[in-house]
Nucleic acid binder design. Structure first.
Lengths: 345, 345
DNA sequence: ATTCAGAATTGCAACGTTGCATAAGTTGTG
DNA sequence: CACAACTTATGCAACGTTGCAATTCTGAAT
């Protein structure tokens, strides 16, 4: 069990120089090149040599210098997450980051996060990443049908993966929540509860997601034979205004008997208003919402929801991206996440 | 207005090599060293030379190579955020990241985020950062009185800043929410509303924050002449159980007439239970909670709260850390954030 | 013209790594 | 014993940057 390289025990003793390939070369009596080659799994080396190097590296606690590798190879071993400022989906950022973090655990990759403060700057952000060689690949979220960022990275042939599909002709890696399935499920659920007039509450009309949901909504409503209505103008609406809408709805005799909400933030505000208006959800009005955080189930334990697992999405996006960086075939890097219904009662 | 270096117009034209110091040297006819020196503001250079270099660099769109700089100087130009997995404070991660992101905007720093999945691994995380030279400095949150991570970084003389104070003898940079002021404000508010029996609902007892609040709570209650009680055992409690507690309290004739809650997640669950139990907050029971996200004010517009601005905290932590990295005197790098009360009606 | 001080610029080495071309070492063959 | 044909190991250059020691230039004083 004991190592041949006894100095190694105190590998990180104070005053010690950093352990580099040079150190290992000196200790083993091999050349720098050999050590480097060996550590990278050079098959032309004698097994004995490889073992010797591996042992010394381990004993000395060798960790490849990122700057050295990066300078020489151009590989940053970093992936970048462009963090959208949207707050619709509560806890989205944290879960996404955790998901990515979990997926890169044990790899040589680090995660750098680039917050986006204003959506219209998105091109700038990508340009920065491209110009500065910040990362080997990028994860973007809240993708739109003809997303500028996607276009830029396709043009630059730069590895990326989007959370959300696009309408570009050139294929690219993506992972997306199956919004159409979500919508169909929600409509069917409401229909099965006897709803006749269903309203869809949906926000950011710039995302692909929006279009998918709206289309699927009309289709599903027609199929179920119920009246479909969309609450317009909720893009960037304040919670207070959303609450007001709920309050007004509660007082409206012509109000819908079923609601589908795809944003947690808006759901909270809307339900707040509805309840303040005296409605009892599940009795006076049915509602299905898209759930991503643990908060809403706590808050509204009796409400139906359909879950999107953002943590899992982060993991999947990362796996796709890493494969893309390694040069995998793009057609194989497009996956969907199935909605998970949680019906109450 | 037009540049002397007309080739520069298409700086990023396809096929062009990356612009390095060498490129600028060739274009200006100066030596590599001179260009490097000039760009770093070498004062021994003729003004004319400096202008020439600056102009060329700009025209060519020169961006220093991070790997080159890092290899040569050891500076990573990265700061790392260790992201605690706690969910008590809704939207904490996102706001913290945005705050840091905003503060490093325009600097050469990048932000890498290292999610922590289990609190007891915190030493490993820090060791990793130290061993891998991941960053020039670290931001940690959810600090405890004798935080292992703090101890490690002090020992290694590694730049860091903590969100939260510690009890170490050796001073270190921190920025902290003034929990004592928060608690005192909350108690006084409840007292002024006529409360006689106040209960404190508080979670993670490993943080310094916890101790500060508990101590301040007893002190403030004594001063106000009211009965103080602490709800024990809520560390890591599930929202469902917390809700149950609220429900039970509602039915308890001996229940407190005022509640202070320092966690948004627990506030939501607790209030849910209290309301389900038929209580009307503000009438049957007073409550003050610590607010960090925009969600609770939407949800409970009538409830008193005291706000901690996490975005601002992220910014402040970053400023302190950067100063620390630049070698500022530590005593000057300890700041507090004042609570912002939002009393309703 | 020569010397000299100071101003301005430059060459060199190094940071840690990898890829390629080359050099040794080893066996087998005629 | 020479030579081919492997197998195994190494030297060198380069990635882009910076710090230092050394060089060249300038102009004034002798």
């Amino acid at each position: 069990m004991s190592s041949k390289f006894t100095t190694a025990g105190k590998a990180r003793a104070p005053g010690n120089q950093r352990v580099t390939l040079r150190t290992i070369a000196d200790v083993t009596g091999l050349s720098l090149s050999t050590v480097s080659l060996s550590l990278r799994g050079g098959t032309t080396l004698k097994q004995e040599t490889r073992d010797k190097v591996a042992e010394a590296a381990k004993a000395l606690g060798y960790i490849p210098d990122r700057a050295g590798v990066r300078l020489r190879t151009g590989k940053t071993n970093v992936i970048a997450l462009v963090l959208d400022g949207a707050e619709d989906s509560i806890d989205f950022a944290r879960q996404m980051i955790q998901g990515i973090g979990h997926a890169i655990k044990g790899t040589r990759y680090h995660l750098t996060v680039i917050p986006e403060f204003e959506r219209h700057n998105s091109a700038e952000t990508i340009r920065y990443i491209l110009d500065n060689r910040t990362a080997d690949g990028v994860v973007i979220t809240h993708t739109s049908p003809r997303d500028k960022r996607v276009q830029m990275m396709i043009d630059a042939d730069f590895p990326f993966v989007s959370h959300g599909r696009t309408e570009f002709y050139t294929p690219h890696p993506y992972h997306d929540f199956h919004s159409e399935a979500f919508t169909a499920m929600a409509v069917e659920r409401l229909a099965s509860k006897g709803c006749k007039r269903v309203m869809l509450v949906i926000g950011d009309d710039s995302t692909t997601n929006y279009h998918n949901i709206v289309t699927a909504f009309h289709k599903a409503a027609a199929r179920a034979g119920i009246e479909a209505r969309i609450l317009e103008g909720t893009k960037g609406i304040s919670p207070a205004d959303m609450r007001k809408i709920g309050l007004d709805l509660a007082a409206d005799p012509m109000r819908p008997d079923g609601i589908i909400s795809d944003s947690e933030m808006r759901t909270i505000a809307l339900v707040g208003g509805l309840q303040e208006g005296g409605l009892v959800l599940g009795r006076d009005l049915q509602l299905v919402y898209k759930q991503t955080s643990g908060i809403l189930p706590t808050l509204f334990p009796a409400l139906d929801s359909i879950r999107e697992d953002v943590f899992a999405a982060g993991g999947e996006l990362t796996r796709l991206l890493l494969k893309r960086i390694e040069g995998a075939d793009i057609e194989s890097l497009q996956t969907m996440a199935e909605p998970q219904p949680h019906w109450r009662s």
